[in-house]
Amino acid sequence: MLQATITLQLYKGGIFIDRAIMPTTVKGKGFYMSLEYYLILSALLFTTGVIGVLIRRNAIIIFMCIELMLNAANLAFVAISRSLGEATGQVFVFFVMTVAAAEVAIGLAIIVSVFKHRQTVNVDEVNSLKG
């Protein structure tokens, strides 16, 4: 499957060169990485973040992992934005960053106040909702 997709992509690249209107040519780069490499990288980064959230108990680290996931999403946004030749994806990255900033501010404030109450930031020690 992977092989087939790459072949398809190279073929497309060939068409670009034939037409001689390839933007990379204009910019003098000659060739650029195809979309799915960025998306695969994005998926790997996101998964790393998910695993981090699942296995770490420190609330701050969990938070960092969430930032990691948001960044992975941003990467996918930007990659697809370039692929479509549109700026919309980057606008969304802007929004994501704003929300992330707000979320970090609130989240860290909550962690601080939890720490003040319980002297811990370990999520497995904060289980007041246990049924």
């Binding site: 997709t5 209107i21 799915e36």
Partner: peptide, 23 residues
């Protein structure tokens, strides 16, 4: 999903028309 993204006609067609310009 990433590898099948280009099977999506919208993405594929945009790339193939070469409208890709650095924003």
């Amino acid at each position: 999903i990433a590898m099948n993204a280009l099977n999506d006609t919208a993405v594929a067609s945009a790339e193939s028309t070469g409208a890709t310009i650095t924003t």
